[in-house]
């Protein structure tokens, strides 16, 4: 039976091994002079596009009111049970509004289900990713922190309308 040549059999050049070492060394040397990929973070910040899921925020209309009608769907769908809503009623056209809307940022897993389930396009994921706090109380974001002017969220809303 003839000896079968295997894929892993080395040629003579590979057995000498030194040419391969030189080839490897030249690759790393070339890399040393190539531009670096590092983004020097505190000075240069990452600017995400519309597809990015940062912290969830509530959309604030131009007149200052929120879009949310406190249906509670986001709270129900949230897999981490991070959202807590207390609904209330008003005399305005939209009769319901959230009296209290809290997202526990320690629990939030940035899955975006709340945004996906929202019938009013009232809760969307922003581009903000610098979320730091020093105690657990600060981690519960109320309406004061969540309400964001609609002008800042245009890119995400457009993305949702095209892709959701």
């Amino acid at each position: 039976m003839a000896v079968k040549k295997r894929m892993k059999d080395f040629t003579l050049m590979e057995k000498i091994y030194l040419p391969s070492i030189v080839a490897g060394l030249s690759i790393t040397l070339q890399n040393m002079f190539k531009p670096k990929y590092t983004m020097e973070y505190p000075e240069v910040k990452f600017m995400p596009s519309g597809h990015y899921r940062g912290r969830p925020v509530l959309v604030q209309e131009e007149d200052g009111g929120e879009r949310c009608v406190a249906c509670g769907l986001c709270s129900r769908v949230c897999p981490a049970l991070a959202i807590d809503i207390q609904a209330a009623e008003t005399e305005r056209e939209k009769e319901r509004y959230p009296e209290r809307f809290e997202i526990n940022m320690l629990r939030c897993i940035f899955c975006g289900l709340c945004e996906e389930v929202c019938p009013e396009e009232a809760i969307v994921m922003s581009k903000e990713y610098e979320i730091a706090f020093t105690n657990r109380q600060d981690a519960i974001y109320g309406k004061d922190k969540l309400l964001t002017p609609i002008a800042d969220l245009q890119e995400r809303i457009e993305f949702l309308r095209n892709n959701k």
Binding site: T28, P35, K36, Y37, E40
Partner: peptide, 13 residues
């Protein structure tokens, strides 16, 4: 530094 350069990083700075 050299390890960083070889891996397209910046290294301690």
């Amino acid at each position: 530094k050299i390890s960083a350069w070889a891996q397209s990083r910046v290294g301690p700075n």
